[in-house]
Simulated scan of single mutants.
Amino acid sequence: MRIVVSGTHATGKSTLVADLGAALPGHDVLPDPWELVDEDLLPASAESFVEQLHVAADRLLALGPGERVVAERGPLDLLAYLEALDALGRPGVTAGSARALRSLTARAHAHVDLLVVLPLAGTIGVSVPDEEDAALREAADTALLDLLDDDELLPASTTVLEVGGDRSRRVGTVLDVLARRVSR
């Protein structure tokens, strides 16, 4: 099962990924793409989001059917951040680059079996540091939720699951869905 955990920053993705990794023996855990990009990049810049999108897409494209992974963030997350920058009037990418990144995102998400989304509305028990960019966080959440309805980005074969609640409820919900998929 190829699982991606998505959401804006400070929604509990890292915790859920760790919990799923512990609960799903044999699944490799793929870290947040931010951990794999040039550390000289500004964290909330278009350049950083583009580089992270490429990391997230490349690792999904390398997966074959039947591989077992839990990935923190997919390209859809980073596309949402780029759209959020645009919505906030901040420097972003050209229209041509945006089209190419959408295409890459669609190709990569064809390699995802389960997309678990942590919307801000369902965030319980997650502390947000004061230095977090609240406007970007909210705009990225809105953009991500809008992108979930884009049939060009997510194939019908990908199950999309929005989860909320506390830590145990989130992991329990995902494990219940996985158990139902296996029992089919």
Score class of each variant (00 low, 15 high):
L154F: 05
E72C: 08
A108V: 02
P75E: 11
E152T: 15
R99T: 10
T105R: 03
V29C: 13
S97C: 10
V116Q: 06
L145H: 11
P31Q: 11
L120D: 14
L41Q: 07
R90G: 05
V17M: 13
R167S: 12
T173N: 03
R107Y: 02
T105F: 05
A143C: 02
V112F: 01
V5N: 03
T105Y: 05
L42C: 00
T11I: 13
G26F: 12
V163R: 03
P33M: 08
V69A: 06
L101T: 06
E138F: 00
A80V: 01
L154H: 09
H111F: 01
A156T: 08
E152W: 09
G125F: 11
R99V: 15
V50F: 02
A56P: 10
T123A: 15
R99L: 15
H111V: 02
R107T: 06
E51D: 14
A71P: 02
D141E: 03
L63V: 08
V37F: 02
R184M: 10
L79P: 05
A110Y: 00
L144Q: 05
T8S: 15
A80C: 02
V29Y: 05
D28W: 13
L178E: 07
A56K: 04
A106Q: 09
V17I: 10
R2Y: 13
A95Y: 08
S183M: 13
L16V: 04
T94N: 03
L178A: 03
V55D: 01
A139E: 04
A87Q: 05
A18R: 15
T11Y: 06
H9F: 08
V70S: 04
A110G: 04
P129D: 10
V4A: 08
D130E: 15
